[in-house]
Nucleic acid binder design. Structure first.
Length: 658
DNA sequence: CAAAGCCGTTTTTTT
DNA sequence: AACGGCTTTG
């Protein structure tokens, strides 16, 4: 099976025990190496289910599952455990979280819930002005959590007033989560880490499940994930990590390149294998990529060698405004499709921010070119879906306060915002959940009679739905639920016209389909399981069966979402200062720019045959037209910038005028 | 208590 | 430009 592997790949595949670092450059056949290595392990007699492979995204996990499934055949119960960090932690926590005093039916908060809790907390400590915005607080909390910093520690190490405020808010935020019996994404990792730290027997139990651990995209680990990996691998030391420090692009959520840079120091006797042959891109594309990434300091020096010689030079195209950019890119795509015999699925448009694809979408639609907008959570952003998910969460776990507040008077049932805030105040004072107060007859005495009756009626509804969802689930459970909350009526009532009703109701039906698909996939479907899939986005709900990429459509995706993918034809758009590198990174300078450069590097290395880089000299922002400058990365790529990390050499002959 | 209108803010990337 | 929160009005 390894006849077609090169020497380095073969070495990585054959090193089956002990710590192993595989530095895999872009397009070096990493996925193949990983799967062949797992197959080898099983060949040599390792019990499949005792192999744990960790990934960061569900996409990566699914793909690995798929590839391994087609390579080896084992029984259902005895398969390699392929899991994202988050879902692994959820499984551990459901079993063990009672040690930490949390309910095991905790629900997982999504970003908008986190945001509203931040807002509430800031209002409570009267920081509603500009000094600390909910979004900034959330970001700061994320940073702290990914480094394992507790509210206490944050308070102690606070220097500025702003730090202090944020630390206080952080404490209250955390209290809020406990009060509502919820955890956020970072908590999943953090609490698992705390369990391992404070309860050695739990750690030993969980670690004893596996003999081999593999971590993909290791450059993206943050401190907590690093600890978890260590806790699970310390005893057997059969840890294989695979990654590319040049593709570390998740610093904003705490990833730290140092973990991959220091691997051999952390694990004595660790072997390092470099995969430097690139089978994906043509020489011409790789030349540009290599030149770009060499501008970064602090990296494992490696130079990708192209297995595919020659190729077309990447094109750079400059436009007057973003409308021309999108028009021309789509014109060019049409040419690819008509004259050059490309399929839509061969083509990708990559961009930095989520506001960029809009124009490209309208152009594609105008010309009837099929496309998919990848990685956007648009399905869950729809109001109807959010409402229904909130209902289901409340039915599963009524203490989930963000969800409760969302639905308590939606559809309107006579429980006013005023009523709710009175109750929430009591709840916060007593340190219990809103639901707890609603059930407390004495507390309800402060309300007038009509709202009190409305609340009683609402409680009835929730109770009866709780019963319904506790029995064996089928699709009629969901439909009965819809009619119980009279959601159709609400959609009709709040729509402007018939077509809007239709559109919105279609979302509701889609939700029913998602539920139905969950029911048919699982042996023992539960509401909890369903909500978990949704929270972790474990399945692609937009297109239930086939992977979206398999549809024959042009792919639109962010640079971040593009990692791990490849396309024959790539259009990277918006290569402008302020966009790539992003304005925030420009303001922060230093390492932030390096990360943006890695992001650009990830983008250009997605292209197999053709790469087009485009930019627009003006761009509309918040209704105003702004002048844009070409990205510094463009100059670096074409050799028109001086590289401080290289001796001044042959480039001196070149001129820098345009 | 619900609906309409006003004002201010906003987006970097994701599990 | 667009959305969401807040205030005023019915």
């Amino acid at each position: 099976m390894d006849a077609t592997l090169n020497d380095a790949q073969r070495e990585a595949v054959n090193t089956l025990t002990g710590p192993l670092l595989v530095l895999a450059g872009a397009g070096s056949g990493k996925t193949r190496v990983v799967t062949v290595r797992i197959a080898k392990l099983i060949d040599t007699g390792v019990v499949p289910s005792r192999i744990l492979a960790m990934t960061f995204t569900n996409k990566a996990a699914n793909e690995m599952q798929h590839r391994i499934g087609s390579m080896i055949s084992t029984q259902r119960e005895n398969q390699p455990q392929i899991s994202t960090f988050h879902s692994l932690c959820v499984r551990i926590l459901r079993r063990q979280i009672h040690h930490l005093g949390y309910p095991s039916n905790f629900t997982i908060l999504d970003a908008s819930d986190q945001n509203s809790i931040c807002r509430k907390v800031l209002r409570e400590i009267r920081v509603s002005d500009a000094s600390l915005k909910p979004r900034d607080l959330l970001y700061q909390i994320g940073q702290w959590k990914s480094q394992g910093i507790s509210p206490q520690l944050a308070t102690r190490s606070a220097v500025t007033d702003r730090d202090h405020l944020a630390a206080v808010a952080f404490r209250r935020y955390q209290d809020e989560l406990v009060r509502c019996g919820t955890v956020d994404f970072d908590d999943l990792l953090l609490l698992t880490n705390a369990l391992f730290r404070d309860f050695p027997e739990v750690r030993e139990n969980e670690a004893a499940r596996f003999d081999h651990v593999l971590v993909d995209e290791y450059q993206d680990t943050n401190d907590i994930q690093y600890n978890i990996v260590k806790a699970l691998s310390d005893s057997h030391r059969n840890l294989c990590v695979v990654g590319d420090d040049d593709q570390s692009i998740y610093g904003f959520r705490g990833s730290d390149v140092r973990h991959i840079l220091n691997f051999s120091r952390d694990w004595t006797g660790a072997k390092t294998v470099r995969l430097e042959a690139n089978y994906r891109s043509t020489e011409a594309i790789l030349e540009v990529s290599n030149r770009l990434i060499r501008f970064n300091s602090n990296r494992h020096e490696k130079v990708l060698k192209a297995a595919r010689r020659g190729g077309q030079k990447p094109r750079i195209e400059q436009f007057g405004d973003e409308e021309h950019e999108s028009k021309q890119v789509i014109t060019s795509i049409r040419r690819d499709l008509q004259a050059n015999g490309r399929q839509p699925r061969d083509i990708a448009i990559l961009f930095r921010t989520n506001e960029q694809p809009r124009l490209f979408e309208t152009e594609l639609r105008k010309h009837d070119i099929p496309y998919v907008l990848l990685g956007s959570h648009s399905f869950y952003d729809r109001k109807e879906i959010k409402d229904l998910v909130a209902y289901l969460r409340v039915i599963h776990h009524a203490d989930d306060e963000p969800s409760m507040r969302r639905i308590i008077n939606n559809p309107p049932r006579g429980i006013s915002a005023n009523t709710v805030s009175q109750l929430v105040e009591i709840a916060t004072q007593q340190g219990v959940s809103l639901w707890h107060v609603m059930l407390d007859n004495e507390a309800l005495q402060i309300l007038k009679v009509p709202p009190r009756m409305c609340i009683r009626k609402f409680i009835e509804t929730i109770h009866s739905q709780q019963q319904a969802f506790n029995q064996s689930l089928d699709i009629s459970t969901f439909h009965a639920f819809l009619s119980a909350i009279e959601y159709k009526k609400e959609v009709v009532r709040s729509s402007e016209d018939e077509s809007e009703t239709e559109q919105r109701w279609a979302s509701v039906e889609e939700m029913a389909n998602v539920f139905g698909s969950y029911l048919s996939r699982k042996k023992n479907p539960t509401l909890e399981g369903f909500l978990e899939e949704i929270a972790l986005a474990e399945t692609d709900f937009d297109d239930d069966k086939d992977n979206q990429l398999e549809r024959n459509a042009v792919a639109l995706l962010t640079l971040h979402a593009s990692k791990g993918l490849e396309f024959p034809v790539v259009y990277m758009v918006g290569l402008e200062e302020g966009l790539l590198p992003h304005a925030r990174a420009v303001a922060a300078e230093g390492p932030a720019i390096d990360e943006e450069r890695r992001l650009a590097y990830v983008g250009v290395t997605r292209a197999q045959d053709e790469l087009t880089l485009s930019l627009s000299l003006t761009r509309r922002k918040w209704g105003r037209i702004q002048e844009q400058n070409p990205s510094r990365f463009l100059f670096e790529m074409i050799g028109q910038a001086d590289n401080p990390h290289e001796a001044a050499d042959s480039r001196e002959a070149e001129t820098t005028n345009s």
